[in-house]
Amino acid sequence: MKFHAVVDIQLHPGIADPQGSTIERALPTLGFDGMSNVRSGKSVHLDIEAADAAAAEAQLQEVCEKFLTNPVIEGAEITLVEAS
């Protein structure tokens, strides 16, 4: 089966996020009020062939741990969609 995956990579809670802080400070100066707790990360989109969704998820978890994230400071959330 073929799936499309979106891997959302974010810094762990409590790890300082200089990029998010800078965005947050910029918002009011641009006239956008009421926004807080800005955290920035990155996303990786990819297609994956696997026997089923669980197998795809397991493989992506491993890729995240070994390569796509630095587990010391980052975690990832994986969203899987069956490709049509």
Partner: peptide, 10 residues
């Protein structure tokens, strides 16, 4: 141990 990330102040 540890990691290096973007400088505070970018």
């Amino acid at each position: 141990p540890g990691a290096l990330q973007k400088n505070a102040g970018l």
